[in-house]
Deep mutational scan, measured.
Amino acid sequence: AITFRFEGQEKAKKFYEKLMRQNLEATIHIHGDEVHVTVH
């Protein structure tokens, strides 16, 4: 698994949606202002 870190939720959401379109499995974790997107 690879984890990407984002400042702010907007960028993270766009990235997450892009992964979903590519049929990749990903989970999102929100830590205050920092958002972690883990790709499995």
Rank of each mutant, 00 (worst) to 15 (best):
E10Q: 07
F15K: 00
F4K: 02
D33G: 09
H31S: 10
V35G: 02
M20A: 05
R5Q: 07
G8N: 15
A12P: 00
F15L: 03
T3W: 06
K13V: 12
A26V: 14
I2G: 03
N23C: 02
E7H: 13
A12S: 02
E10Y: 07
E7V: 12
H40D: 04
L24R: 08
R21E: 12
F15M: 03
F6G: 02
E17S: 04
E7W: 12
F4I: 08
T38I: 14
E25K: 15
H31F: 13
E10H: 06
F15C: 06
F6I: 03
R21I: 09
K18M: 15
Q22W: 14
D33V: 09
E17V: 05
G8S: 15
I2F: 09
Y16W: 10
K18L: 14
F15R: 00
A26K: 01
R21Q: 13
F4N: 02
H31E: 12
N23E: 06
Q22G: 04
V35I: 11
E25Y: 15
K11L: 14
A12I: 02
F4L: 06
E10M: 06
G8E: 15
L19D: 00
M20D: 02
Q9G: 08
H40P: 06
E34F: 12
E34D: 05
K11S: 14
Y16S: 02
K18Q: 13
A26R: 01
A1P: 11
K14Y: 08
G8Y: 09
A1K: 13
G32V: 04
I30D: 05
T38A: 04
R21C: 06
T38W: 09
A12V: 02
G8I: 10
V35Y: 14
H31P: 00
Q9D: 08
A12F: 04
T3I: 15
F15T: 01
T38N: 04
L19V: 08
K14D: 10
G8L: 11
M20P: 01
A26F: 15
H29C: 10
L24P: 03
Q22I: 08
T27Y: 12
E25S: 14
T38Y: 09
G32P: 04
E34M: 11
V35S: 03
E7Y: 13
G8W: 05
F15A: 02
L19Y: 02
M20C: 06
K11W: 08
K11D: 15
L19R: 00
T3V: 15
G8H: 14
G8K: 11
E10P: 04
T3N: 03
H31M: 12
F4Q: 02
K11F: 09
R5T: 10
K18S: 13
L24M: 10
E34Q: 09
V37L: 03
Y16R: 02
F6A: 01
A1F: 13
V35Q: 01
L24I: 15
A1D: 12
K11C: 14
H40E: 06
H29A: 12
E10K: 06
G32M: 05
V37E: 00
I28Y: 07
E7A: 12
V35R: 00
I2W: 10
K14H: 08
T27M: 05
I30F: 11
F15G: 00
A26G: 03
I2Q: 06
E34Y: 13
E25F: 15
G8T: 15
D33K: 11
I2C: 13
G32W: 05
E25T: 14
